[in-house]
Amino acid sequence: MSAVLSLESVSVLYRKGRTMVPAVRDVTLEIGRGETLGLVGESGSGKSSLATAITGLLPSGGRVDGTVRFEGSDLTGLAASDRRRLRGTAIATIAQDPFTSLNPVVRIGRQLVEFQHWQTDRSRAERWRRAAEMLAQVGLSDPEARMRQYPHQLSGGIRQRVAIAAALLVNPRLLIADEPTTALDATTEDQIIGLIRNARQAIDGAVVFITHDMSVVRRLCDRVAVLYAGQVVETGPVGTVLGDPRHPYTKALLACDPAGIETPTRLLPTIPGTVPAPGNLPPGCVFAPRCTAALPVCSQRSPRPSAAGPGHSAACHLMGTA
């Protein structure tokens, strides 16, 4: 299994005043062909920053350290124009918010044609036809009529289908979905997840699925990486990580998942406290201040990732003891 994407000690830093503040720190991950990786964490954990490091769409003042390899070649060394071509052909993104991710004053059809503008072998008419096909493929009835509409005339669910169709239009070998269901209601969410599952089969490559929702990971992903304050605290196959979580943060996230609650309750469990700001990280383990099982050592030394099983590792001082 050759890696589609591999990250080696990737950090993402943003300029804040005179200093550079890390939003993502020292992340090493690998995603193989045919795999779906779930990136999980609360807001502020650095998930989206990691995604921008892959696509190269960092906001100005941002910087990526480390290497990001796509199909073996290092992206960080690429010229901006080559990177841009890669985004239009090999790497596609499904945007987070269907309500704002499409241009409000341009008809759907013209936008879908525009997204294919690196597919230079296709004529305009061909691009239009492919867009209609793709809309039909994501389950929209009467695609031609949809393509003549403006985004505000469509519901959120339909818009997100359009966004998925758009991503598939360019035959990507890496699909990045950044919380594509967060803004949708539960029924629509189910449909969209089904679509992404189908999409995974349709593309010859890998999927990175960003979410804060463990139940979505369970239904969709092969492997999972749990991010906290810009660091991967636990990673491994979905079955083992979710079945036998080793890091207290992963356990806490799982406990908060409403889908995992069996008896009816009025109390939605939450993790007390908030993710520390990137410029203000605690010494030692970043999770220690919120960790219910923290030892004295946790606030002094940062734990290193250690193996917990095949392909499964976690960064926690408790690993040896528990």
């Binding site: 807001s43 954990s45 650095g46 990137p278």
Partner: peptide, 8 residues
Amino acid sequence: MTDASLAV
């Protein structure tokens, strides 16, 4: 950018 930490 979803990271709430950036929203002041």
